[in-house]
Design a protein around this nucleic acid. Structure first.
Lengths: 205, 205, 205, 205
DNA sequence: CATGAATGAGACTTCATTCAT
DNA sequence: CATGAATGAAGTCTCATTCAT
């Protein structure tokens, strides 16, 4: 079983360092000594804080995904109409963020593909991630703002796949991935999918 | 230096086994002994065949991605009109395949995010992966079959992101991912993006 | 990179054991497990102390040659006249010491013949080894005690070659090598080389 | 037990290659594959020729020391007076030869220090090596050409130690070792040791 | 609270050797 | 005669973990 021990106030700082190292090196290549060096503490201190190596890394994954979900929930709160909310959500998913953010997300999904406990967590994360999208679309359909015959669930699955799929060119730093152009195309894709008129809608952002 | 090609006929079979084990366990957790056991050969035989563990796994990644690209190129050849070709490509990307296939692909992108040599290969793979899509869209625009003002390059980036993003629910076995529904939504998304009438077009498949 | 200094007090003792094992078995045949067994510690402890096998052995070589140089410098300090000092130096080089001492010295020169870093060290060691000889001879020439037209540098090269050459019969335990007789011949050789009257001088020892 | 198998005519050439590789790399670091690469044959061919790795290397050591003894015996035959013969012997020992020669000799003594079989061989080699020196000195004493009260055996021990000791600066490529100067000093050392007048004698060479 | 010392488990790698052809 | 395929033995190295302070 994974323990979670207490520690001094530096624990929080060290966890943040661990997140960075994890994003940089990847789960299986992040050793205690990497984090220890980066944080300027002894290996045994990490064990004192977090227990085992897995505990440390899992906590780092939880922490960073939690932040990402929270950011998405915030984004949904900042628009008034369904389409505006949806655009805010898309903007967040399409934002130009430090590559570390994307690496960590990919890290999480990759790890969740094999670790049962992480997989369970990933189900939870995914649901909370999807919710604001689903609600925006449901609202838009209800109000007649959106026109579609598809189930909002499936629409969101496709929309989020589109966003998630961009992790790959981002972490691989693929040249064909032109952030600005892609944002526009992605938004207009969603617009056409929901029967929203592009010009009007996107200018709303 | 990475050695290439040593060993007799069994080498090919063993490589195929290595692909399977790699998909199952992931790069960093695939040990020589795992593959040796699965293939029924000695660990030292693997080293005789491939040189080092890394060489073995990288060759496995190359091999399997090569197959995937090849499958995509085949798919493009089987349609007559641009839209039919595009649908064939989408069908392949959306096909119900053994989860091992998706795991291996994610494995590849994940590994390419950190290994410079793999990253270089990933650029090449990605270009070849994109090409049939780009050509189909260019042809469709040229013939007037598709209506869009976006650059085909960016359209493909988004379309492939959509397909790639589905790797995540697939490898994590997320329940919200309903293969059949998603295929339909994805195809109609592309249709609407290119100004193709859904009903007519999708029935063509 | 070679790590330096880790571990507690036992490190020094263990290093001494390593010197012994190295003299006994030779560089390339001294395994971690040999030293570990001899020292009564775990193999991983040796790695904790020294880093790698090479680091351990090189430190052992440094340590023991250092001692040898030091002994020679001590010997030079114990004579008053140049000839007496020289005889002390010769005595040290000709002393009846445990065969381990000679083995270790041969080990060092042998290893230095191929390892660049050790070779550099060997240059330094050799210079310090030669110095007391050179000084004694220079002093003897200056005071008129020695009569020679050769450069002291070259004289020392030959004298030290004579001493070093005895490593071979010693480590091979060759029967023709009669310690006592050889000491006398060697000293009288040096005496005649420097124009010193044997009887008087050698009795001084 | 060490076997010695037969082989085609290339065996002799390959053995010569093995001698070179052995001098270059040292006993313990000379692998089958090193010799195989250098000789352009397969590893299994070496085993076919020589049996085991040890057999191959021991044979290489025997071969090269044999040549060295033979060269010394030749040198002794080329002088008429005892002193001339002795000078010829010294000249051979002091000759400027490829460093590989010295490396191989050191290799032999080093190996003989630990391998019982090689040690036995080294006793034999040493005796044959010493003989021409001893005979020259005995002859010189008998003829009154040399004046000494020491036992020729011990004199040779010291003289050969002087020559052997030069292996070290040679294989380590020490700068203080000035071949030409050292040859002169060494010969005059022997001259003074035997009561031979330097000027006359060395000019005889 | 935090750390350094010490260790065991587990993996990669090297390399001589066996065997069939 | 010579070689390539395949393997087992043995060693080094990495790293998480335990323990005493």
């Amino acid at each position: 079983m994974r323990r979670r021990r207490a520690g001094g106030e530096r624990r929080g700082e060290v966890l943040r360092v661990a997140v960075g190292v994890l994003a940089e090196r990847g789960y299986d290549r992040t050793r205690f000594s990497d984090v220890a060096t980066a944080a300027g503490v002894a290996v045994s201190t990490l064990q004192f804080y977090f227990g085992s190596r897995d505990d440390m890394l899992i906590e780092a994954l939880h922490q960073s995904t939690e932040e990402e979900v929270w950011a998405m929930e915030q984004a949904a709160a900042s628009g008034s109409t369904p389409w505006e909310r949806l655009v805010q959500l898309l903007e967040r998913g399409l934002a130009i963020l430090p590559v570390q953010t994307w690496r960590m997300l990919l890290e999480f999904w990759y790890a969740a593909a094999r670790d049962p406990e992480l997989r369970a967590h990933s189900v939870d994360i995914q649901q909370r991630y999807r919710r604001p999208f689903i609600e925006a679309i449901r609202d838009g359909i209800a109000s007649g703002e959106f026109t579609t015959e598809e189930d909002p669930e499936d629409l969101v699955t496709v929309i989020l796949a589109m966003l998630d799929g961009m992790l790959i060119p981002r972490v691989c730093d693929h040249a064909y991935f032109r952030e600005d152009r892609v944002r526009e195309v992605a938004v207009s894709t969603v617009a056409s999918l929901l029967g929203v008129k592009k010009n009007v809608s996107y200018s709303a952002t």
